[in-house]
């Protein structure tokens, strides 16, 4: 078991190091995110919608779209260098690769979310008073993990196909429950309402747990042969 965790750690830090070396890709993702946030909040400004209420929706739509860029990179890089087989040979267990990649994607998404959130906050002109910080942090962390887990699983498939544009079609229907739950969580956090929040917290936890454990069985079949 110790070796298992150590392997995850090694691959995780290796992936992060790669990400830092090719930082321009992450930066272009951030620019894309800021632009998406700008365009959406601007579009809402042009209508009569109360922009202080749109923050959770815009935040998660942005993170969801950006997540596609983030997770797609993680396996595409290995594919380019024909490194998947070598990695699997070195690691032995296929699920190690899943957890390491998912954790790396999770870290990237979390950093992305932390950068995007203040920008959106300023654009939407939301009051900071009465914000439930714990709930906000929770939704950001668990939301990113759920996205990373589902995305990593699916991108491992699409990267092996000639037409890898399938990823968003596969990914978004599976993410709908998570999307509903994290948007509700973030909304309640901003409003500072704790009533009803616990149910959503449980829901996100169950979703994340399920999609963290399913690959333990199913990832084996994704990286076969």
């Amino acid at each position: 078991m110790n070796g298992y965790l150590r392997n995850i750690k090694v691959v995780y830090f290796r992936d992060l190091k790669q990400e830092l070396r090719g930082l321009d890709e992450f930066l272009s993702m951030v620019v894309f995110g800021v632009m998406l946030v700008f365009i959406t909040s601007f579009a809402f400004q042009l209508t009569d919608v109360d922009t202080s209420r749109i923050l959770p929706a815009v935040l998660w739509v942005t993170i969801f779209f950006a997540s596609e860029l983030a997770v797609q990179r993680s396996f595409a890089r290995e594919k380019e260098r024909n490194a998947i087989d070598a990695l699997l040979m070195a690691l032995g267990d296929k699920s190690v690769l899943f957890y390491a990649k998912a954790l790396a994607n999770f870290t990237i998404l979390l950093v992305f979310g932390v950068i995007i959130l203040p920008v959106l906050w300023i654009f939407c002109d939301v009051s900071l008073r009465g914000v439930n910080l714990w709930l906000l942090v929770f939704s950001l962390v668990w939301g990113s993990w759920g996205l990373a887990a589902v995305g990593t699983m699916l991108t491992a498939m699409t990267v092996q196909l000639p037409n890898s544009r399938l990823l968003p079609i596969l990914m978004f229907p599976l993410l709908i429950p998570l999307f509903i739950a994290v948007v509700r969580c973030t909304d309640l956090a901003i409003l500072g309402v704790t009533e009803g929040a616990l149910g959503w917290v449980y829901f996100v936890s169950v979703y994340d747990l399920l999609f963290s454990l399913l690959p333990l069985i199913l990832f084996e079949f994704v990286l076969e042969g």
């Binding site: 699983m153 699916l154 498939m157 092996q160 196909l161 596969l170 229907p173 599976l174 709908i176 429950p177 509903i180 739950a181 829901f203 169950v206 979703y207 399920l210 999609f211 399913l214 199913l218 079949f221 994704v222 076969e224």
Partner: peptide
Amino acid sequence: RFAAVYGIIAFINVPLVFFSA
């Protein structure tokens, strides 16, 4: 093979969608 994996995940996802909605 991928479609089979997706078919399983998607099925498990259905009750999650229902309850969240």
